[in-house]
Amino acid sequence: MNPSPAGAQARVFFALWPNDEERTALAVWQVPLLNVCGGRAMRTDTLHSTLVFLGEIERTRLEALRLAAHEIDGACFELSFEVARYWGHNHIAYAAPTHIPPELPRLVQQLEQSLRRHHFRFELREFKPHATLLRHAVWTDAPLPEMTRVSWQCKEFVLVESQQNAQGAHYQVLEHFPLR
């Protein structure tokens, strides 16, 4: 088998991708979190909630990946972020829901099952919905600030390619998949 030519790989994931208004409302949380945790705020245009992370795949498999996603029959739902949390193992401050709508884990489960049927490998981990707000954050035990609730109207999910450049990661939405 011949090795893949340069650029034949794509780093991809499926995500909930908020609209500009929803994303801007969530970005407001970054300032008070930076005051407590320091770190680096994620660019507002990159805020999202990952559903399934696949990592590197062959570009020749992107069409099969799209087909797998089109098999999903998920319902629309509202996802509300109400609390800020911190993961010490990767130094991330993030927004989290206190209530997970049942449609969300069903969507992730359907997506994982379809990906398996199409012979895709992906990260196997317990699904914990969140939106990363800060990277390289450091937190001790000071109370994290209370946040104003931010709700996303989830009417679709997207396939995203992560591309690295000198300024960091740039996300390109490759395709939108509507929910019913």
Score class of each variant (00 low, 15 high):
residue 89 H to E: 15
residue 125 R to Y: 06
residue 79 L to K: 00
residue 153 Q to D: 12
residue 13 F to P: 00
residue 70 H to A: 11
residue 25 A to F: 06
residue 54 L to S: 07
residue 111 L to T: 02
residue 78 E to Y: 04
residue 149 R to D: 07
residue 74 G to T: 05
residue 164 Q to A: 13
residue 146 E to D: 13
residue 44 T to W: 05
residue 75 A to Q: 14
residue 21 E to Y: 11
residue 113 Q to G: 11
residue 116 R to Y: 09
residue 135 R to I: 09
residue 58 E to Y: 05
residue 83 V to Y: 03
residue 54 L to D: 08
residue 160 V to W: 00
residue 107 L to V: 06
residue 134 L to A: 00
residue 1 M to H: 14
residue 94 Y to S: 07
residue 60 T to N: 12
residue 152 W to E: 00
residue 162 S to N: 08
residue 77 F to K: 02
residue 111 L to N: 03
residue 6 A to G: 03
residue 21 E to F: 11
residue 127 F to R: 02
residue 155 K to P: 01
residue 72 I to T: 09
residue 100 I to V: 15
residue 62 L to H: 05
residue 10 A to W: 02
residue 66 R to T: 13
residue 72 I to M: 05
residue 72 I to P: 02
residue 102 P to V: 07
residue 63 E to W: 04
residue 76 C to I: 10
residue 139 W to Y: 13
residue 25 A to V: 05
residue 119 H to P: 02
residue 42 M to Y: 04
residue 146 E to G: 09
residue 155 K to C: 13
residue 177 F to A: 08
residue 146 E to K: 11
residue 178 P to E: 10
residue 168 G to F: 07
residue 153 Q to S: 13
residue 29 W to T: 01
residue 151 S to Q: 11
residue 121 R to F: 09
residue 4 S to G: 08
residue 140 T to I: 07
residue 72 I to V: 15
residue 71 E to V: 04
residue 146 E to P: 03
residue 178 P to L: 08
residue 104 L to F: 06
residue 100 I to P: 02
residue 55 G to K: 07
residue 32 P to K: 07
residue 110 Q to D: 10
residue 38 G to Y: 00
residue 81 F to S: 01
residue 72 I to Q: 00
residue 71 E to T: 08
residue 116 R to L: 14
residue 124 L to G: 05
residue 160 V to N: 01
residue 93 A to V: 10
residue 49 S to Y: 03
residue 93 A to I: 03
residue 86 Y to P: 03
residue 172 Q to K: 12
residue 173 V to L: 08
residue 165 N to I: 05
residue 68 A to M: 10
residue 8 A to V: 09
residue 120 F to R: 03
residue 17 W to V: 03
residue 74 G to R: 01
residue 109 Q to E: 15
residue 167 Q to D: 13
residue 170 H to P: 00
residue 92 I to G: 01
residue 3 P to T: 11
residue 120 F to T: 10
residue 140 T to P: 01
residue 27 A to S: 15
